[in-house]
């Protein structure tokens, strides 16, 4: 077994390009997932009741089905989803990378939105009442009090979810997104070197998770001064 041989030459370059694509998918998917998730949580909290129900149903569907199935349906089923307005019509035909980013973002958004919702609920009512009594309006209360408090409450769960997002990117190889798992599959199939290639795969994902964990812990340390004193 010679792991190092695969890390140089053509194979090495392919693995590196797969790694870069994986990092891109991870960063963009987690970033958009966080933003969409936050907007969903805000809309469910402050928006009209029917919107809350609609979004809740969406979140339930995403959380209730495997990511593998979702990404299949999006990539292969998308082209059948067409909108026609008179002469013009458009279908949801995406290339693998686009489908990967969209699917991962939607999947992440469902989970992140639930984290933020729990974060909103965990802020003591009194902290918001205190803001009201000193004259902060709704917007100021949201940006100055609720958001910062929620961030520190949900940070550990967000790190956790972001780690899961990295590992879900591997699923995208089945719709031929050229990410890490896809490149390593090619090598493994070519040489019948499944143990070697998947060992490399495991080690690289683990290294990325550790980087994420170190960053997360550093952020938590910075925020640990703000511990709740009571209640």
């Amino acid at each position: 077994m010679n792991l190092l041989a695969y890390l140089s030459g053509e194979d090495g370059r392919n693995i590196l390009s797969g790694l870069l694509n994986t990092c891109l998918l991870w960063a963009v998917g987690s970033g958009l997932g966080t933003i969409f998730g936050f907007l969903i949580a805000v809309a469910r909290r402050y928006g009209p009741r029917p919107l809350d129900y609609l979004l809740q149903a969406g979140v339930e569907v995403i959380r209730g089905t495997p990511f593998l199935v979702q990404i299949y349906l999006l990539y292969f089923g998308g082209p059948y989803l067409c909108l026609s307005l008179g002469e013009a019509s458009a279908c949801l035909t995406l290339d693998p990378l686009e489908a990967g980013i969209l699917g991962l973002s939607v999947y992440g958004a469902a989970y992140y939105s639930e984290l933020f919702r729990a974060g909103f609920d965990a802020i003591p009512r009194g902290h918001i009442e205190a803001a009201t009594t000193v004259g902060l309006n709704r917007w100021q209360t949201l940006t100055r009090i609720i958001l910062p408090e929620m961030t520190m409450l949900v940070l550990p769960s967000m790190v956790n979810m972001t780690i899961l997002m990295l590992k879900e990117t591997a699923v995208l190889s089945i719709i031929s997104v050229k990410e890490l798992k896809f490149q390593v599959d090619i090598i493994g199939n070519r040489d019948y070197a499944f143990v070697e290639s998947f060992t490399i795969l495991a080690l690289v994902y683990w290294a990325l998770v550790e980087v994420c964990g170190v960053l997360g812990r550093a952020a938590e340390r910075r925020l640990s001064r703000y511990r709740f004193a009571h209640s």
Partner: peptide, 27 residues
């Protein structure tokens, strides 16, 4: 009106000074 609560309700992400100064800046 100024209000003081049983549970203090200080904002945990701001220093003591930040808590007192907050409304002076935003309001």
């Amino acid at each position: 009106i100024g209000m003081v609560f049983q549970q203090f309700n200080l904002w945990p992400h701001m220093t003591a000074l930040g808590n007192v100064a907050e409304a002076l800046v935003t309001v």
